[in-house]
């Protein structure tokens, strides 16, 4: 049997509930309303409209799927591009008074590419090298023809076991900054287990980096004064010249680099499609200028000779 205060409590709750939850404003009670009365439905539309809708959905989905597959890129308009001499004029002004040893022109080539596609990487020998401190070591069979070739071409170190021993002993202070390997010595190199030491330095010879060869002489000739480039996050960045270069020298370097990269792209063409979108010239401390491919300055008074004075 229920106590009276319990009843009162439950009544109080009821009254409270009715106060907090206002009743619907409609005058017809819900159970009296016919079931067909509905506030509003989305109109189904004609068949063509439905098809259009479906098409839209599909496109949306596709866009969503493709969204993060390639690196973000944007194509700047023509008005935002500069000729080489204009860019050089600004950059030389921005770098005034700095020792030329510590300042370089740099170039950044934006490439439209998928994230999972093979990257562009190769070696290039610029017409006017930026720096010339290539010291090559050659892994080759002792007393072989390749070793004589290496010695003649001016390698700083060569040999097989002796070289491995040297690398193991003073791995922190190697006398060379490029390492190539004769293809006969490749098994020995694999057995030597030097990947731990050479890998992080980027010196490990491999077919991918084009540093294992049959002809040591030709490769060494190609490597002296050559620069490696590699596409990273949709762009290739590399130094292209000293601040003291004349416009002509710089133009030749840029042209050579672009030609090499275009060739590289055509080689990869059957596997992936890549596009060179933009070439941006900058310097160590200066702003970046998208190039329009022109050479001479927009100001007729500024000649290339004016941009070739000492810095």
């Amino acid at each position: 049997m229920a106590y009276t205060h319990q009843c009162i409590a439950s009544l109080a709750r009821l009254s409270l509930a009715s106060a907090t939850r206002p009743t619907t404003t409609s005058t017809i009670p819900r159970y009296l309303a016919p079931s067909v009365v509905q506030s509003r439905w989305k109109s189904a539309g004609t068949q063509a409209m439905q098809a259009k809708e479906r098409e839209k959905e599909k496109l949306k989905k596709k866009r969503k799927q493709n969204r993060f597959k390639d690196y973000k890129h944007a194509v700047p308009s023509k008005e935002e591009q500069y000729s080489l001499c204009d860019a050089m004029r600004y950059l030389r002004a921005a770098e005034v008074g700095r020792p030329p040893k510590s300042v370089t022109y740099e170039v950044s080539l934006k490439v439209r590419t998928l994230k999972n596609s093979p990257v562009l990487r190769n070696r290039i020998r610029l017409p006017y090298p930026v720096k010339n401190d290539t010291r090559i070591a050659v892994i080759c069979k002792e007393n072989s023809g390749a070793m004589a070739e290496a010695r003649a071409a001016g390698a700083v170190a060569f040999g097989e076991e002796s070289l491995f021993e040297m690398i193991r002993k003073n791995s922190s202070n190697l006398p060379f900054n490029r390492l190539i390997c004769h293809s006969d010595s490749e098994p020995a190199l694999k057995k030597a287990n030097l990947g731990r030491i050479l890998g992080p330095k980027g010196l490990m010879p491999s077919l991918k980096t084009n540093t294992i060869t049959r002809s040591v002489k030709a490769l060494m000739h190609e490597m002296v004064g050559a620069e490696n480039y590699r596409e990273r996050i949709g762009a290739i960045r590399m130094p292209i010249g000293n601040i003291q270069f004349t416009p002509k020298m710089l133009a030749e370097n840029v042209k050579a680099l672009i030609a090499a990269i275009k060739e590289n792209i055509t080689v990869l063409e059957d596997r992936v499609s890549k596009d060179l979108i933009e070439v941006v010239l900058t310097s160590t401390n200066g702003p970046g200028f998208p190039l329009n491919g022109g050479f001479s300055s927009t100001d007729e008074k500024v000649l290339p000779a004016h941009l070739s004075t000492a810095m």
Binding site: Y90, A93, A94, V96, G97, H306, T309
Partner: peptide, 15 residues
């Protein structure tokens, strides 16, 4: 100096 160098690109300005 950068502004001077911009307007007079041919003149060597050494520091």
């Amino acid at each position: 100096l950068p502004r001077l160098k911009y307007w007079n690109p041919a003149i060597p300005m050494l520091v």
